[in-house]
Design a protein around this nucleic acid. Structure first.
Length: 844
RNA sequence: GGGCGAGUGGCGGAACUGGUAGACGCGCCAGACUCAAAAUCUAGUGGCAGCAAUGUCGUAAGGGUUCAAGUCCCUUCUCGCCCACCA
């Protein structure tokens, strides 16, 4: 039971979905993508066609996409765009004889798999295994030129063993450290919550109001590299958009720290501190902890400002609610109000705080002395000052700062239009960054265990490298423990470990760290693992790294800041340790746009507008159509909307390629073949104005196409490269194709539609070596010269090439043309000739 | 509020450093083939006027620079993304 699949206005392959058989139209040998694709995919698999090995006498190129998280839903069209960009480039360079490495991997740790495990009771390991198998199968159906021997998976113990090794290197250098930090905490579920699990200040599961709980967390000291990370952005061949985002994220500002002594009589009589962790309680480590010892808070407040020159206008100070010295400065009268304000501020999420920009705050009852004016100024606490930036305290200059002015107006504080003074008069110059250290501990089961154990005193000790990996223990229930620890804490046997304690000089039974690493840690070094993916002795082999890396092309559509900053950070760190011979991991970054639903909206399951790429293939269009369509859809770096009808258009194009090669009734192939050589001696015979025989004309079009496609791919203008191929095919349909024309077509088509192109090349008995163009065919003997009068197009002249560069001659010809004469009767004042544009503009 | 992009036919989009606007595809329209569809092939397709040659208007709006502006500059509007009280 065959049924017509085509709907009105839609080109669809004729295939019966139920039987999988092709509707037998009157064309005997028709394009059957699924058949061709299965054939070539099998062949590539069997021959390991894309295996890459180091060959030092051949130029290398390493290309990678941002490896995917293999979700249960399988590949989506966004993956296909991302992977196909990489694949087109990989095949393009491979065809040019470059030694190409195109690896693949899976970023498998993370919440979705864990949540699925909690919901279904299935082990995340199992879920991951199934999802990877599905992703691999689907990627293979797209015909990617992947070296499958270089497949990696971050949750494989053989991989995360080395993630743990990386952690230990950072730990040894003091760049992995612990510090108290506030975490979202649900008192009902007794669990730590990630930011995205807090909805309107309530727990996403039980709906109870969440609170912030101070907990010890692990951090990577990325701020150590802030200066270099910022400075080297300039030299990166990355999109400006990403570079700007990284600069803003790092957010360097130059200012000064200025001390404002407290006016003693107002300082709190209770000089006891409740914590010794630093001035502000938000994550921050820049070595200032020491300065905060010995009750500095009871003597002075240090502010950070980028405008120390405005200090004469500072009429009050403001500290953040989390400001650690708040206890000491607040007066007894104000204490209740201040503590109430602090408690409320702590409850609010960052989003809530930002939503309401209306200034709020409370007077602390305390005063400070301005070092510049020696006047006594009040100290307020307000949440518009952020604890995590600077010192958590500011001098407010309402005359120069909008936020301060707003606050001053609301609380009736004086606004003084004071003169500006020398910047360095009262403070120490100081550089500040918005970037915070990277909080990497997660109270989660499905992540890379942190290779640390604690002794009886609670002091951390690294797990020795020869005991790695610290395996993820098997548990039954993946829900975090009531202690705020991950489900790892439920593996009682696993928790105990014998570790040598350097302090006591003895082996001791210690308790393992139950936090796991942020998934971004796992993806911060995977690009280097690709160089030696099965290395059992090291995270990466320095020789292989030296040959393959840094990565030449890295393509993704997400993680503009986080991941792309973290890999840069680790690269610099491991370069400092001597493990990497370069300081930037990615030479060229391609940042591709999203593919939206036909209505222009984001594709999402809930909206039901998701296009499944495998459906497109199985509808009979095939992978080649899907790949080529996604390259043709628009510039790779712009968002695009899926258009099912355009998919049909691309299918039609590939069908025409197929017919040109396999069905002579679709072209005048025979007649041209008879001609033999391309530069035939026959006179012009097609009645057209353009000179040359059919063979010659083919050579012109062919060479033009080679040039266009080659330069377009070089510039990553994939959409116009495909358009050029379409033009070429249209031309061949008109004038007929020689075998050489077809071989060139197949070669140029191969990066986009590798299966069909391979089939064509096989039929033609040709290799896939990238063709070169010959400029001699691109030089025309008669050229078209455009004549404008006052910038308006008036005539096009056909001029012999040797005369077209002679401005006097061209002018003479132009003035002889009656279309031009109509406008030049009053005389020509000026004539501008542009040889490059073959254009003459007459000014009258 | 700040930063970065982008506004071109009915639609997606071409136009490298200012130099023939609308490549290519979709859609539409006509013709061929067919009993008839579909598929395929051929031709046409920015608006307005004209049988046509051709003229004229036209790249969000307005102004400017230039022999020449989709492209450069200024103003305004719209959309998208990112950051968002960072002192």
């Amino acid at each position: 039971m065959l049924k017509k699949v085509k709907k009105r206005g839609k080109v669809r392959p004729l295939i019966d979905k139920r039987s999988g058989k092709w509707y037998n139209s009157n064309i005997m040998d028709r394009y059957e993508p699924l058949k061709i694709e299965a054939k070539w995919q099998k062949r590539w698999e069997e021959t390991e066609a894309f295996r890459a090995t180091e060959e030092s006498d051949v130029p290398k190129m390493m290309l990678a996409e941002m490896f995917p998280y293999p979700s249960g839903a399988g590949l989506h069209v966004g993956h296909v765009r991302n992977f196909t960009i990489v694949d087109v480039l990989a095949r393009f360079y491979r065809q040019q004889g470059v030694n190409v490495m195109r690896p693949f991997g899976y970023d498998t740790f993370g919440l979705p798999a864990e949540n699925y495990a909690i919901k279904t009771g299935q082990a995340p390991q199992e879920v991951t295994k199934v999802n990877i198998a599905n992703f691999r199968k689907q990627a293979k159906r797209l015909g990617y030129a992947i070296d499958w021997s270089r497949e990696i998976n971050t949750s494989d113990p053989e991989y995360y063993r080395w993630t743990q090794w990386c952690f230990l290197q950072l730990y040894k250098k003091g760049l992995a450290y612990q510090k108290e930090s506030y975490q979202w905490w649900c008192p009902v579920d007794q669990t730590v919550l990630a930011n995205e699990q807090v909805e309107n200040g309530c727990c996403w599961r039980c709906g109870h109001e969440v609170e912030k709980k101070k907990m010890k967390q692990w951090f990577f000291k990325i701020t150590e590299y802030a200066d270099e990370l910022l400075a080297e952005i300039d030299g990166l061949d990355w999109p400006e958009k990403i570079k700007t985002m990284q600069r803003n994220w790092i957010g360097r500002s130059v200012g000064a720290e200025i001390e404002f002594p407290l006016a003693r009589e107002y300082a709190s009589s209770r000089g006891i501190r409740d914590d010794g962790s630093g001035r502000s309680e938000e994550p921050r480590d820049d070595g200032r902890d020491e300065a905060s010892r010995d009750g500095v808070y009871s003597r002075a407040i240090t502010v950070f400002t980028t405008r120390p020159d405005t200090i004469l206008g500072a009429t009050f100070l403001v500290v953040a609610p989390e400001y650690a010295g708040l206890e000491f400065i607040v007066s007894d009268d104000a204490r209740d109000a201040v503590m109430k304000y602090k408690a409320e501020a702590l409850k609010k999420s960052e989003i809530e705080r930002q939503e309401n920009k209306e200034k709020t705050g409370v007077f602390t009852g305390a005063y400070a002395i301005s070092p510049a004016t020696k006047e006594k100024i009040p100290i307020y606490v307000a949440d518009y000052v952020l604890a995590g930036y600077g010192t958590g305290a500011i001098m407010a200059v309402p005359a120069y700062d909008d936020r301060d002015r707003e606050f001053a107006e609301k609380f009736n504080l004086p606004v003084v239009e004071a003169e500006l003074i020398d910047r360095d008069l009262y403070g120490m110059p100081k550089v500040m960054y918005k970037m915070r250290d990277w909080l990497i501990s997660r109270q989660r089961y499905w992540g890379c265990p942190i290779p640390i154990a604690y002794d009886a005193e609670g002091e951390p000790h690294p797990i020795p490298e020869d005991q790695l990996p610290v395996m993820i223990p098997e548990v039954k229930d993946y829900q975090p423990d009531s202690t705020g620890r991950s489900a790892l804490a439920k593996a009682k046997d696993w928790l105990k470990v014998e570790v040598f304690n350097e302090k006591t000089g003895k082996m001791e039974t210690m308790t393992r760290e139950t936090d796991t690493l942020d998934g971004y840690a796992c993806s911060s070094w995977y690009l280097w693992r690709y160089a030696s993916p099965h290395d059992e002795k090291a995270a990466w082999d320095p020789e292989a790294i030296k040959y393959w890396e840094p990565v030449d092309f890295y393509c993704g559509g997400d993680h503009a800041v986080a991941h792309l900053l973290y890999v840069r950070f680790w690269c610099k760190f491991f370069a400092d340790l001597g493990y990497l011979p370069f300081r930037e991991p990615v030479k060229k970054l391609l940042y591709n746009g999203y593919i939206n639903a036909p209505d222009g909206k984001k594709m999402s399951k809930s909206k039901g507008n998701v296009i499944d790429p495998l459906d497109v293939i199985d509808d009979g269009y095939g992978a080649d159509t899907l790949r080529t369509y996604e390259m043709f859809i628009g510039p790779y770096d712009m968002d695009a909307a899926w258009d099912p009808r355009s998919v049909g258009g691309v299918y039609r194009f590939l069908n025409r390629c197929y017919n040109l090669c396999f069905d002579s009734s679709f072209s005048s192939l025979e007649s041209v073949r008879d001609n033999g050589s391309e530069i035939a001696s026959e006179p012009r015979n097609d009645g057209r104005e353009r000179s040359g025989s059919r063979g010659e004309k083919n050579a012109v079009v062919r060479n033009k196409t080679i040039k266009k496609v080659t330069t377009d791919i070089h510039r990553c203008n994939f959409n116009t490269a495909v358009a050029a191929l379409m033009e070429y095919v249209n031309e061949l349909y008109k004038v007929g194709a020689t075998e050489e024309d077809l071989a060139v077509l197949a070669k140029l088509l191969k990066p986009f539609a590798p299966h069909l192109a391979s089939e064509m090349l096989e039929k033609l008995g040709a290799d896939d070596e990238w063709p070169k163009w010959d400029e001699k065919y691109l030089v025309q003997d008669v050229v078209e010269v455009v004549v404008q009068v006052n910038g308006k197009l008036r005539a096009k002249l056909n001029v012999p090439a040797d005369e077209a560069t002679d401005d006097e001659k061209v002018k003479e010809l132009a003035l002889a043309d009656e279309r031009v004469q109509k406008y030049t009767e009053s005389g020509v004042k000026k004539a501008i000739f542009v040889p490059k544009a073959k254009l003459l503009n007459l000014v009258v």
